[in-house]
């Protein structure tokens, strides 16, 4: 099953299980079924609760927050995560504040879905990875889709938490297969943390959000086959708040740690992870935690130019080698 089908299945399950669950967004209706087809079939099956909207990211996110405030479950799709900047006020100043600023915690089941990232030639305003702007907002959870995490389980967790969530979906994942890992490695999943490894203690631990999984696996394969460098990959589903304990436990045993993300450098999720590891493992780590990012640049449209700036398998490969020097 492809990732987009797994996601689509999860959305079907959420709407089928709860008659007060709504899905809002632009161009969601069948037969189109959303720009990336994640919502295919939903408007046919749940016509009154799958609502196509005008191009009004601020309003539709606020509508979702209003439904959530009234006790409904609301899932809002922003067609490209770049446009979430238009809904920043509703997410940061309204939804995240409403669960926390009225003295007692107000449960709100609001999920903002954010197709994200580059690699598809959509150019500077349709390719960014803006996760870092949502890290550290009190009351807001940040998740990222992963080929190793079943989306229905992730959506169940987000809904059960009753806190507003942003859910980043790296667009390159949609067409990949779920749960498919290079046969050099085995993988497991514990409490929302996926671990891909071989049966040897790792030289390097790579920590990455779901969208980077395949690039990290490709780098791990090359490092193992060409240089006999053993890596373990850790992919958390929830990026923030971060459950650091299991990362710390694995990182403790390695010679180096690399955090890889597609974002540009500066105030990133990876820097936050590195800070936590430095604090917890100061005096234990043999090297500083290394970060791998995309270049400090806008994202060009032409394929060869885009490849030159985005985080790639090679960026991760080279960062791992550098971290072990």
């Amino acid at each position: 099953m492809r990732v987009v089908e797994n996601l689509n299945h999860a959305l079907h399950e959420v709407l089928a299980a709860n008659p007060r669950a709504f899905l809002l967004g632009e161009d969601l209706l069948d037969p189109y079924g959303g720009a990336f087809k994640a919502t295919r079939g939903l408007s046919t099956r749940f016509p009154s609760r799958v609502i196509t909207t005008p191009i009004s990211e601020s309003a539709i996110t606020g509508v979702g927050a209003g439904l959530a405030l009234c006790g409904d479950t609301a899932i809002v799709e922003i067609m490209f995560s770049d446009f979430v900047t238009l809904a920043f006020d509703q997410i940061v100043n309204f939804a995240a504040k409403s669960v926390s600023m009225y003295g007692t915690r107000v449960p709100m089941r609001l999920i903002v879905r954010l197709p994200t990232g580059g690699g598809r030639g959509y150019g500077p305003t349709h390719s960014q990875s803006l996760q870092k702007h949502f890290i550290g907002v009190p009351g807001l959870d940040v998740y990222e889709m992963s080929p190793l995490h079943d989306n229905h389980a992730v959506f169940t967790q987000m809904i059960a938490a009753e806190r507003p969530c942003v859910f980043f979906e790296d667009k390159v994942l949609y067409t990949k297969r779920m749960h498919e890992v290079d046969d050099l490695f085995t993988w497991d999943l514990t409490d929302g943390l996926a671990r891909v490894h071989v049966d040897t203690p790792p030289d390097c631990v790579i920590i990455a959000p779901g969208g980077v999984t395949h690039r990290a696996l490709a780098a791990m394969r090359r490092l193992l086959l060409e240089q006999e460098i053993v890596c373990t990959l850790l992919v958390p589903s929830r990026l923030h708040p971060l459950d650091a304990a299991p990362l710390v436990a694995v990182a403790r045993e390695a010679r180096s740690v690399v955090v890889a993300e597609e974002s540009t450098a500066g105030g990133t999720w990876g820097a936050e992870v590195a800070h936590v590891l430095h604090r917890e493992l100061w005096g234990v780590l043999r090297n500083p935690v290394a970060l791998a990012h995309s270049a400090d640049s806008i994202i060009p449209t032409a394929s060869h130019l885009e490849r030159a700036v985005l985080l790639t398998e090679t960026t991760i490969h080279d960062t791992v080698l550098e971290s072990l020097k």
């Binding site: 309003a59 606020g62 927050a65 209003g66 006020d89 409403s98 009225y102 003295g103």
Partner: peptide, 30 residues
């Protein structure tokens, strides 16, 4: 919340201009 951020059954105030209208639309949809 203080002066401008109050929640009580059927009542909510918040301090950013225009922010409550989309939320009110969501409540009206509900």
């Amino acid at each position: 919340g203080g002066s401008q951020h109050i929640l009580r059954e059927g009542y909510l105030s918040t301090g950013v201009q225009g922010e409550s209208l989309p939320v009110a639309v969501g409540a009206a949809l509900h």
